[in-house]
């Protein structure tokens, strides 16, 4: 299995790693049994994501897709961030091996989960806006 140079770059030098203490939204997806968990922190001002951080337990692709996804939503409006697809994350990384596609799905879901939490904290039901975020089932991560 071979990772692209972009994947290796984001794995070796992940962008936006860490936590935001006073985050406006936090989302966590995946589970330890599947071997990957992603947690995203968002700081939102006037509907714009001004800061984003992540923490990931998982393989090289899981770390790289988290890193790339944070870069792709930083500075964007919430509605722009919700349009982020796993395909776009994959393309930005110059592709992923087929068995790792689920990592990009998880990255997309992590962003959505953080946005959902942002709405929930503001007393707004996130489901009509964000949609349903599927639970990671045993042995089937994402896809």
């Amino acid at each position: 299995m071979l990772y692209s140079e972009k994947v290796m770059d984001h794995f070796a030098n992940p962008r936006n790693v860490g936590e935001i203490a006073d985050a406006d939204g936090v989302g966590e997806v995946g589970n330890s049994k599947c071997g990957d968990i992603m947690r995203m922190y968002l700081k939102v001002e006037n509907d714009v994501i001004t800061d984003v951080k992540f923490k990931t337990f998982g393989c090289g692709a899981a770390i790289a897709t988290s890193s790339m996804a944070t870069e792709m939503v930083k500075g964007k409006t919430i509605s722009e961030a919700l349009k982020l697809t796993n395909r776009a994350v994959m393309e930005a990384l110059d592709g992923l091996p087929p068995v790792k596609v689920h990592c990009s799905v998880l990255a997309e879901q992590a962003i959505k989960a953080a946005v959902a939490d942002y709405y929930t904290r503001r007393g707004i039901d996130p489901t009509p806006i964000v949609g349903k975020i599927p639970e990671c089932e045993e042995g089937h991560c994402g896809v």
Partner: peptide
């Protein structure tokens, strides 16, 4: 340090 599982 970057693992949410480790946090748990």
């Amino acid at each position: 340090s970057m693992s949410p599982l480790w946090d748990h």
